[in-house]
Design a protein around this nucleic acid. Structure first.
Length: 573
RNA sequence: GCACCCGUAGUUCAGUGGAUAGAACAUCGACCUUCUAAGUCGACUGUCGCAGGUUCGAUUCCUGCCGGGUGCGCCA
């Protein structure tokens, strides 16, 4: 193999394709829905949620790079117990029956989601001390489920909807700091109120896949028979059957999720359910975010998207942590039993392991670590967590600490890069034991290193331009002998489309492999940079032109790859 | 009890049946009057948890065991 000839072909190809270098066509014409983030709308996001959204947003970009028509959905679970708990908390606060550590009011500078996190923790504690408060939760839950106006007292349903709305707003703001965006918000409340759940239930019942026990522990419920029947657990005998409708007639989360998935696959079109889709707002990247609403909510806004624009996916990817493997399996199996085997096979649970806290980091949060464990689970309910916004802010502060001349904007982009990279560089099955010192590190195998390599490449070309050096129109003749570092770099650039395609297959998505590839590319560029003399001083015109072209090709490849990782590439640091 | 996942250098992790198992961090040492030192180079560090099996060949596949995590709610 002639390195100079192969090298020229590689460079020509990269520069010809430009921003499309690495872009594939396999997915063209195939619609994929990716659901990610999906945080309970009752409290601030924590670092565990960042793993979800970083993986999810990266996967969205990977699939788009393969030509897929991707719809990123953020499913809002706004009808559950967690939202009800905050409603209970706020109600108790107005009645003077609850005290918050740090102050009962929203503090100056405290965002609404942070405030709700405090309320949520306090309510959890209050339930333990005063179990009678749970009656109020039941009242609130009932109000949310039925959405009717009360004859007296607070309108809990409206209060809950208002809280969810504000919390979602806060979550989106947090995610925007990491350059994460969506196409559509879907709401559990909309699924219930538009009647999709009711129709789905009837479909399930009419297909004969449900059972309705009249005696025993599950009397009065509707279940999906599942697994081996009886099983032994630490708490005693249990049925592995999955309850979809509780004995009080309301749906479980999994029940509603089955409805959600029928809709995602376009299987709800003939059920007579009417959803409306209206704009929510423009996001940080200029993309319009849409939201699903029920007919009565749609009302006043003029602009509406046709319903066929959303859903109707060929494939569905759900980014959800592995603890939900069993309910995800139930959803898939339900589709299969309804006769939708193809859709069941096209439903992919991208399961990833959880984020825990290192002993050192847990100790800093005030957790008792005297039992000597290596890691500690986070708990939103107990307030043992690192909040997403705190981590992002700490990372930005760390960047400025390292380089005091950084602009706020550059520091923010570097912080986002560092965190996104950290969250995807581990294999999906690896539990991330998050340590503050490690996640904030800005050298070595980090997102900052990638940005630095890219900025350095830009700097070289900038210097050449400032020196009025004119690059020949086409990379012509390469030097007869290439340096080892030059050839290695060329090979890595050449490998980009294959590496990206391999790691972006729908059924084998592996963001960490992509992260490793990009790190490798940046490292090879650093190697080339350190082991060849400055291009700007090069006297051999053939060598000078080749190296300038090589830097240009590296820059293009890095830029393309960084964008798939969701970075905003920095031309100057 | 059953099911799933993890176990690789002092630490955190890559590793798609194939060659001498790789990075980063940490430690020690070298390199800024040459395009960005958030960089580079070098040194140090491995019974790939243990025992069998399949294979020409196993960190990788299978079985058993040991250690750790998770799931098995009319929560979500």
């Amino acid at each position: 193999l002639s390195h100079p000839i192969a090298g020229r072909i590689i460079i020509e190809r990269v520069l010809e394709d430009g921003a499309d270098f690495g872009q594939n066509t396999v997915g063209i014409g195939t619609k994929v829905i990716v659901e990610h983030t999906a945080i309970n709308s009752n409290k601030a996001a924590h670092v565990g949620h960042l793993r979800n959204s970083s993986l999810g947003d990266t996967v969205v970009r990977m699939l788009r790079s393969q030509g897929y028509d991707v719809e990123a959905q953020n499913y809002i679970d706004d009808t559950g117990v967690q939202v009800a708990d905050v409603v209970v908390g706020l109600t108790l606060l107005t009645q003077g029956k609850l005290q918050l550590p740090g102050g009962n009011e929203q503090l100056p500078g405290e965002s609404f989601d942070y405030y709700c996190s405090r309320v949520y923790v306090a309510v959890g504690k209050a339930y333990e001390e005063r179990p009678e408060l749970k009656a109020l939760r039941d009242t609130v839950l009932h109000a949310i489920e039925h959405g009717e106006e009360p004859e007296e007292g607070p309108d809990y349903a409206v209060l809950a909807a208002d809280i969810s709305h504000q919390i979602v707003q806060a979550h989106l703001k947090t995610m925007a700091r990491l350059n994460i965006s969506y196409n559509l918000l879907t709401w559990e409340s909309a699924i219930v109120h538009a009647g999709l759940w009711q129709h789905t239930f009837e479909m399930l019942r009419n297909s004969g896949v449900l059972e309705h026990p009249e005696s025993g522990p599950l009397a009065g419920t509707w279940i999906l028979p599942f697994g081996e029947g009886e099983m032994q657990t630490e708490e005693g005998e249990r049925s592995s059957d999955k309850v979809l409708v509780k004995s009080n007639g309301t749906a479980t989360y999994t029940g509603k999720d089955i409805a959600n998935h029928l809709w995602k696959f376009g299987l709800a079109d003939d059920l007579g359910v009417e959803f409306h889709f209206i704009p929510w707002g423009v996001q940080q990247d200029g993309r319009m975010l849409w939201t699903m609403r029920t007919p009565e909510e749609a009302g006043k806004t003029g602009k509406e998207a046709p319903p066929e624009r959303f859903g109707h996916a060929k494939k569905v990817v759900n980014v959800i942590d592995v603890r939900q493997s069993y309910p995800q399996q139930v959803v898939r199996e339900s589709l299969r039993r309804l006769g939708y085997g193809e859709q069941a096979d096209s439903l992919i649970h991208l399961g990833y392991e959880v984020v825990t806290l290192s002993a050192a980091t847990a100790a800093r949060l005030g957790v008792d670590t005297s039992d000597g464990r290596e890691s500690y689970a986070m708990s939103g309910r107990k307030g043992i967590e690192i909040k997403a916004d705190d981590l992002i802010s700490a990372a930005a502060a760390r960047m400025i600490e390292a380089r005091s001349d950084l602009s706020e904007e550059t520091a923010a982009i570097l912080a986002a890069s560092a965190i996104r990279y950290f969250m995807i560089r581990f294999g999906l099955q690896q539990v991330i034991t998050l340590d503050m010192d490690e996640v904030l590190r800005a050298n070595g195998d980090t997102g900052v290193y990638l940005q630095y390599a890219y900025a350095r490449a830009n700097s070289i070309l900038r210097r050449l331009q400032e020196a009025n050096y004119e690059l020949p129109e086409q990379p012509t003749e390469l030097p007869e002998q290439l340096e080892q570092s030059e050839w290695e770099l060329l090979r890595h650039i050449d490998a980009y489309p294959r590496a990206l395609a391999e790691t972006s297959r729908v059924e084998a998505l592996a963001p960490n492999t992509l992260a490793a590839y990009v790190y490798d590319l940046a490292a090879h560029f650093s190697d080339f940079y350190e082991h060849t003399p400055p291009i700007i001083k090069e006297s051999d015109q053939r060598v000078k032109a080749f190296r300038a072209w090589l830097v240009r090709a590296t820059m293009q490849t890095l830029s393309n790859a960084l964008r798939v990782l969701g970075f905003v590439p920095l031309e100057r640091i």
